[in-house]
Amino acid sequence: MANIMSKSVSGSQSKNQLSGRASALINIFFVIYSALCILPLLLIVSVSFSDEQSVMTHGYRFLPENFNLAAYRFLIKDIDQIVHSYGISITVTVIGTILSVIVIAMYAYPISRSHFPQAKFFTFFVFLTMLISGGLVPWYLVYVQMLDLRNTLWSLIMPLIMSAFWVLIMRTFFKETVPEAVLESAKIDGAGELRIFIRIVLPLSLPVLATVALFQTLTYWNDWFLSLVFISDNHNISVQYFLYKMMVNIQYLSSNPNAMAEITRAGGMVNFPSETVRMAMVVVGVGPIVFAYPFFQKYFIKGLTVGSVKG
């Protein structure tokens, strides 16, 4: 018996693997592709450490011609703002992600249960929101006039908690991975739905929870749009909005030559941050999440593996 087992395992391993050459090719391919993903970012980092003058004359280079910290020195002047903005971004991301995973899971579970007669209706109820939008202004009015949330952190959290897309993904996952029989037997044992959900469904669903958590983290971290709409005072400016504001000011004025001309004609001075400062700000804004992501991914992959070895 033990003999057969070990045989089949070793047999499957040797047979079920790629040849050395194919394997090597795959490795080489991914090394090249990974390089293509990193190189453009290196260009930005390099420019941020360059001397403005040499960037203007010689263009963007992968190695800074005259290594120079001027751009970062310029940013240091705003250090209070940057630190504060990180605080805002982190708070919103953490609270938002936690709420989001809870709310989405609690909505997805009932509509994944086939014996729930309204499952179809509530699936459609969430699906429809992906297709039809009433537009920005009515939505804005609900937040500003009905809920009066302008300039609050809640206005940066609430709109993104519920995501139709992830509800549907989670519903599918529950349907596919959580055996109906297990749930039924738990029910016969007298467990309530909430108890079943917390004790049985959630532990079986770590991969999808981890996935949703990761993507919601990203969504919250990268969001600038809600700030653009709801934040008009100088507090509560997140890192992304800080970045966005700078970029978009440049964008707006350079893509609207008319506005630009009128502003200069009327006497306004248009002074953009220099190229190197722009790039340094990108590094400051993107950097932390790039470094935090591998850490996240550890749990993320772990979550996935937990799910896959369930049998």
Partner: peptide
């Protein structure tokens, strides 16, 4: 939303 820019409301 940004593009569609400003679709005003009815009821609210």
């Amino acid at each position: 939303l940004l593009l569609t820019m400003l679709i005003v409301s009815s009821l609210a």
